[in-house]
């Protein structure tokens, strides 16, 4: 009897969830506050532009070897074959290298946008893509403020390619991402996000004349898994500085929360109006006449 009741509530819950689409807006770890998202701290002061991360990323994910231009005057972007790229920028403090990849937001727009949960924020922090769920609608690409997900436009079985923080290959087994492991300049650091922020603050505090006083990703887009340190303002490094501080899924929250209300209130209202205006209530079958 008890089990039947439980099943009943399960079914009711599922029905409710389908009707009240949009109650689980934020991707959060299930276990509660004691779970901590992992992230990577990238220090562009330390980055020497060796492109090791690019090569190691490609080999870790079976992607074609990166093509590094002899003169890095041209800004390259990650695309469907390169999950990460390093570009050199001439800045007010000389040449600075910047690594680019998916930012692994705390509340990712792509995961909130995904209607099949193919884009998924894992409890460990990496945002991954699950091909068996994805229908290729590219709404994640429309929503991502960093344009991180890349789509294979020239394939009959296209995949979304983006940095997964080596979740399946390494992090899940307790390892660290390939780019961090093989970074020759000690520019990358993997760890719990909270500790990375602490470490970043320490570096800024110890060398205030070397570092620009801002951790990119601490608040951008509601906080991201990747955190950036730089010697110069971030717009000089081609990073998007127009990113809002609130999370992006929060933008659709109001709309989604109004859905259950509309679903309950509007039909009742319509039925009321119909009853009020109907002169002939005796035979509903006449409605089509």
């Amino acid at each position: 009897m008890d089990i039947n009741r439980r099943n009943f509530f399960k079914v009711m819950g599922a029905t409710g969830a389908t009707l009240a689409l949009g109650s689980e807006l934020q991707a959060r770890p299930k276990k509660g506050a004691d779970t901590e998202f992992y992230g990577v701290l990238y220090d562009s002061v330390r980055c020497i532009g060796c492109y090791n991360c690019e090569y190691e990323c490609a080999s870790a994910h079976g992607l074609p070897e990166p093509v590094i231009p002899a003169e890095d005057t041209q800004v390259r972007k990650p695309d469907e074959t390169w999950r990460t790229v390093v570009n050199g920028y001439e800045t007010s403090k000389g040449k600075v290298y910047v690594k680019q990849q998916c930012m692994h937001c705390n509340e990712p727009a792509c995961a909130a946008a995904c209607l099949t949960q193919a884009m998924y924020k894992t409890e460990e922090g990496p945002v991954i893509w699950r091909g068996n769920k994805c229908m290729g609608c590219r709404y994640c690409m429309v929503s991502c403020p960093f344009d991180s997900p890349k789509f294979e436009y020239f394939s009959a079985n296209p995949k979304i390619n983006k940095c997964t923080m080596c979740f399946e290959e390494k992090v899940k087994q307790g390892g660290i991402p390939a780019c961090v492991e093989f970074c020759s300049g000690d520019a990358l650091m993997f760890g719990p996000r909270r500790e990375l922020i602490k470490e970043a603050r320490r570096r800024i505090a110890e060398q205030p004349d070397v570092y620009y006083d801002h951790i990119y990703g601490e608040h951008e887009a509601g906080g991201t898994g990747w955190l950036y340190l730089s010697p110069v303002p971030f717009e000089e490094l081609g990073l998007r500085t127009g990113i809002q501080r609130d999370s992006y899924p929060a933008l659709t929250k109001g709309f989604l929360y109004s859905v259950p209300t509309v679903f309950i209130a509007v039909p009742a209202l319509l039925l009321g109006i119909q009853q009020a205006t109907s002169k002939n209530q005796t035979n509903p079958e006449n409605e089509d006449e």
Partner: peptide
């Protein structure tokens, strides 16, 4: 026609892949 992986089009309707936080999920239903 615009879906890259149209064979997964039933995922938001049937199965265990409901992206209930998505506006597109709502629109699809």
């Amino acid at each position: 026609l615009d879906l890259g992986r149209p064979w997964n089009v039933i995922n938001p309707i049937i199965g265990n892949s409901f992206g209930v936080s998505s506006v597109l999920f709502l629109v699809a239903w």
